[in-house]
Simulated assay, not measured.
Amino acid sequence: MIALFKGLGLLLQDNELYRSPFEKQVEHWKNLSDEQIREEVGVLARAKCQWLIASIVLWQAASLLVLGLITSYLWSDDYHITFTRVVIVLGSWVSILFVIWFMANMFDHTAGFERWMKAFNSRARISSDADSVETVAEALEMAQHYPEVLDYKQAVSARRELRHEDIRIMRELGRMRQHSELVGKLNHIGDDGLRLQPAF
Results as ranks from 00 to 15, higher is better:
residue 6 K to L: 12
residue 7 G to S: 05
residue 8 L to E: 10
residue 9 G to E: 01
residue 9 G to P: 11
residue 9 G to F: 02
residue 11 L to V: 02
residue 12 L to N: 12
residue 13 Q to T: 13
residue 15 N to L: 08
residue 19 R to F: 15
residue 25 Q to C: 07
residue 25 Q to V: 08
residue 27 E to G: 13
residue 28 H to K: 11
residue 30 K to E: 14
residue 30 K to Y: 10
residue 30 K to V: 05
residue 31 N to I: 05
residue 32 L to Y: 00
residue 32 L to W: 00
residue 34 D to T: 07
residue 37 I to L: 07
residue 38 R to V: 10
residue 39 E to R: 11
residue 41 V to M: 04
residue 43 V to M: 05
residue 44 L to N: 02
residue 45 A to Q: 07
residue 49 C to P: 05
residue 50 Q to N: 06
residue 52 L to Q: 06
residue 53 I to C: 03
residue 55 S to P: 04
residue 56 I to F: 14
residue 56 I to Y: 13
residue 57 V to L: 13
residue 57 V to I: 11
residue 59 W to G: 05
residue 60 Q to E: 15
residue 65 L to R: 01
residue 66 V to M: 01
residue 66 V to R: 00
residue 69 L to Q: 01
residue 76 S to L: 08
residue 76 S to M: 04
residue 77 D to K: 08
residue 80 H to A: 14
residue 83 F to Q: 14
residue 85 R to E: 06
residue 85 R to T: 08
residue 85 R to Y: 03
residue 87 V to S: 03
residue 90 L to C: 03
residue 91 G to P: 00
residue 92 S to F: 08
residue 93 W to L: 00
residue 95 S to A: 15
residue 99 V to P: 06
residue 101 W to T: 14
residue 101 W to G: 06
residue 106 M to P: 05
residue 107 F to P: 00
residue 108 D to W: 09
residue 109 H to R: 12
residue 110 T to E: 13
residue 113 F to W: 10
residue 114 E to V: 04
residue 116 W to E: 04
residue 118 K to P: 01
residue 122 S to L: 02
residue 126 I to F: 12
residue 126 I to Q: 03
residue 127 S to G: 01
residue 127 S to E: 10
residue 130 A to S: 14
residue 130 A to K: 06
residue 131 D to I: 13
residue 131 D to W: 14
residue 131 D to Q: 13
residue 133 V to L: 09
residue 135 T to R: 13
residue 137 A to K: 07
residue 138 E to V: 10
residue 142 M to H: 11
residue 143 A to I: 04
residue 143 A to F: 02
residue 144 Q to K: 11
residue 146 Y to F: 12
residue 148 E to R: 02
residue 149 V to R: 00
residue 150 L to A: 10
residue 153 K to Q: 15
residue 154 Q to D: 11
residue 155 A to Q: 07
residue 155 A to P: 11
residue 155 A to I: 04
residue 156 V to W: 11
residue 157 S to E: 14
residue 157 S to H: 02
residue 158 A to L: 03
residue 161 E to N: 10
residue 161 E to M: 09
residue 164 H to G: 07
residue 164 H to Y: 11
residue 168 R to T: 13
residue 169 I to R: 00
residue 169 I to Q: 00
residue 170 M to W: 03
residue 171 R to C: 15
residue 176 M to E: 05
residue 181 E to P: 08
residue 182 L to W: 12
residue 185 K to M: 13
residue 187 N to L: 15
residue 187 N to H: 14
residue 189 I to C: 09
residue 189 I to Q: 14
residue 190 G to I: 00
residue 191 D to L: 02
residue 192 D to I: 00
residue 192 D to S: 02
residue 194 L to Y: 02
residue 199 A to S: 08
residue 200 F to R: 03
